[in-house]
Amino acid sequence: MAAARALLLLPLLLASARAQCPAPADLKNPDGSKICAQLYADDSPYYAQCCGGGVLRAQPGDDVPYIPLNWNDKISSLVVAPRCELNIWSRRGKEGSSHKFKSGVVYRLQEIKKGLFGDWDNSISAYYCTCN
């Protein structure tokens, strides 16, 4: 009977362990220094499962007009540390539409509008991250 219950709970445990966005205050490098923002390749319809896939860490002062090709237009969720700001652009070279994120979690970039018809899901091609 206990084994049957464990099998029923296993999918729930795996789903919750799959991905969960960190709290903005928890963004730290292994040496304890602050990370400005973390950008994630995956999101989910369930907020508790967002911030999955690969992780791109933006350090304070990172000015990246040409995001690495394997990250270009691949970011779906992000977290910005306290007292930090992440500026993003839709085109390489800091061209196109832009948006500014202050401290907090953006579980799904598809919920952030970009112009009349678009959104920011899989649309980031450049960024600049600063902290006070």
Rank of each mutant, 00 (worst) to 15 (best):
A81M: 06
G54F: 02
Q110G: 10
L39Q: 03
L8C: 09
L27A: 06
N122P: 06
R108Q: 15
G115H: 13
E95S: 13
R18A: 13
R91Y: 14
A2Q: 12
C36L: 02
S33V: 07
Y47V: 01
K28D: 01
S76I: 01
A15D: 15
M1P: 10
K102N: 12
P22F: 02
G118F: 06
A15L: 12
D31M: 14
W120G: 00
I75P: 05
G93V: 07
L86F: 03
I75A: 02
R5V: 08
V79L: 05
S90C: 05
C84Y: 02
K74L: 09
P11S: 10
S76C: 01
C36W: 04
Q110V: 08
Y128Q: 14
C131G: 04
K34V: 14
N70P: 06
I88Q: 05
R83P: 01
L9I: 11
S77R: 10
L69K: 10
A58T: 06
L13I: 11
L39E: 04
R91K: 14
G52R: 11
A23R: 11
A19I: 08
L86S: 04
Y46Q: 11
K34R: 14
G93L: 04
S77T: 06
L8Y: 06
V80A: 03
L109Y: 06
Y128K: 12
C84E: 04
L12W: 06
A17G: 10
S125A: 14
C36Q: 00
W89S: 08
A17I: 04
P82S: 10
Y46K: 12
N122Q: 07
D63K: 12
S97A: 14
L7C: 08
L56C: 03
G53V: 09
S77H: 09
W71N: 08
D42C: 00
L9M: 14
V79H: 06
W71K: 12
L27I: 06
A58M: 13
D73Y: 07
C131K: 02
S103H: 07
I88V: 15
V55F: 01
P30F: 07
P65R: 00
L7Y: 03
R92L: 15
V106S: 02
G104F: 08
G93E: 05
I112N: 04
N70E: 13
Q110T: 07
R57K: 13
N70W: 15
Q59D: 01
G54V: 01
P30N: 08
L10N: 03
I35A: 04
I35G: 00
V64R: 11
G96D: 08
P30L: 07
C36H: 00
Y66V: 11
V106T: 13
V79Y: 05
G53S: 08
Y47F: 02
K34D: 15
I124W: 11
G115T: 13
D62C: 08
L116H: 03
P22M: 04
P11H: 10
L109D: 07
A23E: 15
I88F: 09
L78V: 03
E95C: 12
A4K: 12
S103I: 07
D119T: 14
